[in-house]
Amino acid sequence: MRTKNMIVAVLCATLVPVVGQTLADEFSQADLERWSQQYMEVANQGRQLWVSADLGTNGVACAQCHPNAANTHPETYPKFQKQLGKVANLWEMVNWCIRNPLEGQPLAADDPRMTAILSYVTYERRGVALDPGKH
């Protein structure tokens, strides 16, 4: 099995230069910086949503209970959430908060605003080890 894989790998490595393309996973420092900046832009959009009342209808903002997104524990998801009655993803819990304390309409999982919120929340917990299921 191992030998076979190695052969395949060698074949690829020798074939690619022949057709004159760069490796698919090659990237430059400039790429890294640009992508990181793109992520930070989205995280900053999330921060703006976090402190604004725009997600709800009653003036409440996420940051009122979660300054710096503290106590959101993105590293513990998925986990059981009593409010949701099941093991849930963080975005589902975000929607619970939007519905309840904020009295707003929930967002689709792939709504750019949800992506922004999750980007911000996760950024504030960067460096913390994953601990799924923890309470």
Partner: peptide
């Protein structure tokens, strides 16, 4: 409303 304990913020 509730507030978290500060140590739940990892960055300071």
């Amino acid at each position: 409303w509730p507030w978290p304990y500060p140590e739940t913020y990892a960055q300071a």
